[in-house]
Design a protein around this nucleic acid. Structure first.
Lengths: 148, 148
DNA sequence: ACAGGTGTAATCGTTGAGGTTACCTAATAA
DNA sequence: TTATTAGGTAACCTCAACGATTACACCTGT
């Protein structure tokens, strides 16, 4: 399985917004942190806006900020807001209907896939943005220790 | 998130092998059921061989069969044998090291991803190939009822 | 009015996957 | 032994998806 990197980028963006604690942050600034293009960030922010995770103002002096506290944002929400609904892919071509297996395998697979994805999201829901921030700071501290 | 359709194809292939109950089945036959090319099936079978899920004989009158009973094959094994190890993608470009978030976010994300994937595989492990066969047959029965 | 930023369309390049052909190799049947 | 059959594998094509980039219209605070 492979995701797009949108989820990783989204968490990164939200972490920066959390770090900035309510200040409005521009897409250019975020793009610089993620090391990508502002347009990519803006497209991402549109998804996060729809999910009510961020608020964005237009015009001069504009930018984005979290619309909730980091404790109230969990990874499952972020994942759902940013990734395609369909997680598992089925072959493009229809299976051979004459085959007793091919005839009915698709819906059975669908149930298996759905259950697996639900399990994954339930796990993601356990981690909040605040947890991520804490872990990031801990990592950075370790890095400092190694350097010194 | 989006998977390749290799997992779906693999389950389909294994289901056909289970249906054939130990008979050697050729890649051409499997390809016809999945409605794809024999080479695709052979590439898939190589992965399944490595995972000791199927046995393949070469030469005339050759083909593949399950190396265990369907009750002893679960979806997590199939998934792992066939999908890439890395499930979640991180951006191709390195985040900006000067950004306090970008500097350390990657390993934190890695842990979140790993946990989520483990949760998913644990769920997949609950379903065996035998369960899938049962569900497929039930689906087909329902179809028959609708038709009559 | 203007400067700074978002929204969005259009386009390009890359990457990965499935699809296809072709050919070698192995094993069985004759 | 030889012919036949089928897997292993390389080479190549096509296509879709995604990130990257440019360009421009529109909004808004100063």
């Amino acid at each position: 399985m492979r995701t797009s990197c949108r989820f990783a980028m989204a968490v990164h963006v939200l972490a920066v917004l959390a770090y900035k604690e309510g200040d409005r942050v521009t897409s250019a600034f975020l793009a610089n942190s993620v090391n990508t293009n502002p347009v990519i960030i803006r497209r991402l922010l549109l998804s996060l806006q729809k999910a009510r995770l961020v608020e964005t103002c237009k015009g001069a002096g504009a930018g984005s900020r979290l619309s909730r506290s980091p404790q109230r944002i969990n990874m499952a929400e972020v994942y759902r807001s940013v990734e395609a609904v369909e997680s598992f892919a089925t072959p493009a071509r229809k299976p051979n209907a004459a085959c007793p297996v091919g005839h009915c395998i698709k819906e059975t697979l669908g149930r298996v896939f759905e259950s697996a994805q639900t399990a994954m999201e339930r796990d993601l829901a356990k981690t909040t943005l605040a947890d991520v921030m804490k872990a990031v700071q801990a990592s950075c501290d370790c890095g400092k220790k190694r350097d010194s």
